[in-house]
Write a protein that binds this DNA or RNA. Structure first.
Length: 427
RNA sequence: GGUCGGGUGGCCGAGUGGUUUAAGGCACCGGUCUUGAAAACCGGCGUACACGGAAGUGUACCGGGGGUUCGAAUCCCUCCCCGACCGCCA
């Protein structure tokens, strides 16, 4: 959420930003509602004050008749207050709907426009290598080497679920180890988080459970939901807390399963592992001082690059355009890995995403910091970034590392955990 | 799952309907004293929102929500969480 005072002071700027983001918001309406609400709040508070004075006077009243008269007066004041308050809450509710629909402000350098306006910043260290042989996609490669059982997954849980088998199962563990090891070395605290969370926590992070088009699986007869990312649990971990400024920045590395219904995704390219209902993800999350968040976002992006460079995967880095930032992000960088088996002749596919949410998430989650010796508290900035989403990484690895003889070379950095250099062939 | 006990400020902790304006302590900040520090002493010290140029003032907040009352940390209902013990169990 945005700061209400900021919206009132800068309605034109906020409206323009909403337009750039491609989100329909009536900022003027919000401003009017909020101003009216404040007037009512004054009335309510004044009536409360009068009623409190009356209440206190009752204890000191001399005779029973005086007390009774005061009680009636108190009742009337409270009734009046109640009426005003109901009206105030009605306005607040309407203003709140608009407020919640407002996206975060946008970084001045973020490209303005729709999805196509996103700007390619650079490529990874590894060039796309030529494939002087017929390229297979990861589904065919997995079939050939008995790595993934999509039919089995569909049988027990439906389309979008799968079993990882043999080296694919080992690769899943290897990828996790590789990413977590690097992040620990960088000073992140490794966290295996709950895979379920309460509705409040999801809403605080910006996810909407149980709606008609929800991306979230919910547990029946319970407030619990399967998480779509560790961002939900890691952000929620500090909800309602005041953090000592000395402790910032806090950097966490979340290891969790991610569950997504992918409602409304029917028809989109979804062959194989690309769009699945469950996958494992290693997530970076940070709470920072406001002046630290820009550097932290760049740091997240560079770590993502390092991980994919070291796995030998070609990729490009995108500076995401305003129209594609979603609600909470102030700026967002995506890594798209080259997937030779995608489309005809290969395509880039999103593998990571790093966002600086500034104070947009922390305002809703109420995560503050306090500077020693200073009065009051301030909102922290939150950032999240994919270190590695295992399912998408598997696609990139299998497809980029396939050899002319049909075997798949295991990236060197993963061999320690996979226990072999090569899948298939004579490895 | 069962029984019992709990949830009060950054932390600990008192408080069973009205001078409670939430006692007291710790921590923290300022000061006195001191060569310096500690100790001692004095003072300050919650958050949010609103109003105000400011000083400041008002309202709300004692796990969440609802109720009773002129008035609720306190009484009632409900939900959540924590702890102890019992049962079951990887």
């Amino acid at each position: 959420m945005l700061d209400k005072r900021f919206i009132l002071d800068n309605p034109d700027l906020v409206q323009e930003n909403c337009n750039h983001r491609g989100i329909k918001v009536d900022v003027a309406r919000f401003v009017q509602l909020e101003l009216d609400r404040r007037q009512l709040q004054l009335d309510v508070e004044d009536l409360s004050r009068q009623a409190n004075v009356v209440s206190k006077s009752i204890a000191q009243a001399k005779d029973e008749a005086g007390r009774e008269a005061r009680k009636v007066e108190g009742r009337n004041l409270r009734d009046l207050k109640e009426q005003k308050q109901v009206e105030m809450e009605r306005l607040a509710a309407e203003a709140n709907v608009i407020h919640h629909s407002m996206p975060n402000l946008s970084h001045p350098e973020a490209p303005v426009g729709g999805e196509d306006a996103s700007k390619e910043l650079r490529h990874g260290e590894i060039d796309i290598r030529p494939f002087p042989f017929p390229v297979l996609d990861h589904v065919d490669l997995a079939e050939q080497h008995s790595l993934i059982d999509f039919e089995g997954g569909a049988r027990i849980a439906g389309h979008g679920f799968y079993f990882l088998k043999n080296e694919a199962a080992l690769l899943e563990l290897a990828i996790q180890q590789f990413a977590v090891e690097l992040l620990i070395r960088e000073g992140f605290t490794p966290m295996i988080t709950p895979d379920l969370a309460r509705g409040d926590i999801l809403k605080g992070t910006g996810y909407i459970p149980r709606g008609p088009e929800t991306q979230i699986y919910s547990i029946e007869s319970s407030d619990l939901n399967l998480v779509a990312t560790a961002e939900i649990t890691l952000g929620g971990l500090y909800a309602g807390q005041v953090i000592d400024a000395d402790e910032l920045p806090i950097r966490l590395c979340g290891i969790s399963h991610c569950f997504r219904t992918e409602a409304g995704a029917a028809g989109r390219a979804s062959r194989g592992l690309y769009r699945v209902h469950q996958f494992t993800k290693i997530e970076m999350f940070a709470f920072t001082l406001p002046e630290q968040s820009e550097d932290m976002l760049n740091y997240f992006r560079e770590l993502e690059c390092e991980l994919f460079d070291r796995m030998g995967i070609p990729y490009r880095v995108l500076d995401i355009a305003t129209g594609d930032l979603g609600g909470p992000a102030y700026r967002k960088f995506d890594l798209e890995a080259w997937m030779p088996g995608r489309g005809t002749g290969g395509e880039y596919g999103e593998v990571t995403s790093a966002s600086n949410c500034t104070d947009y998430q922390s305002r809703r989650l109420d995560i503050r910091y306090k500077v020693k010796g200073e009065k009051g508290t301030h909102l922290v900035h939150t950032l999240n970034g994919t270190a590695i989403a295992v399912s998408r990484a598997l696609i990139a690895i299998l497809e980029n590392c396939q050899q002319a003889d049909g075997s798949i070379l295991v990236p060197e950095v993963l061999r320690r955990w996979v226990g072999k250099d090569r899948i298939g062939g004579n490895g």
